[in-house]
Amino acid sequence: MHLLYPLTLSALLFGVGTYALLARRNAVLVLMGVELMLNAVNLDLVAFDVWLRDTLRSGQVFALFVITIAAAEVGVALAIVLAVFRLRATVAIDELTDLGEPDALAAERLTGVELAKGADVS
């Protein structure tokens, strides 16, 4: 098998995950994008491991470690999402703007959803 088959699939999967990370509003759907990106990296690790015939099986062992860390990450992230939902009754990540700059937020509220580019916010 040409090495490009798994590598290209992994690159495309990473792009799909990036899109989900930036475009989704629900925090759980953003997490799904992160999972897709982690899986793209895992495919690379396994492909390079088999290509190099590693006697230590580093790539596959690292893929297992990544899967473990992804499971831990999802557990903690869902706990955070549930805590946010309990406090704010929403998980829409573009509504959680308490740490944003007040001026920019006020300008954004005035102009609706579009960014206040060039507006006099000083």
């Binding site: 990473f14 990036t18 899109y19 930036l22 475009a23 989704r24 509003r25 959803v113």
Partner: peptide
């Protein structure tokens, strides 16, 4: 409303990341 309004920008970034990596 499952997507934020910056969906086109996200699509551009995703396609660019995938294309660059590939």
């Amino acid at each position: 409303d499952v997507d934020t309004p910056n969906r086109p920008v996200a699509a551009v970034v995703g396609v660019a990341a995938a294309g660059l990596l590939a």
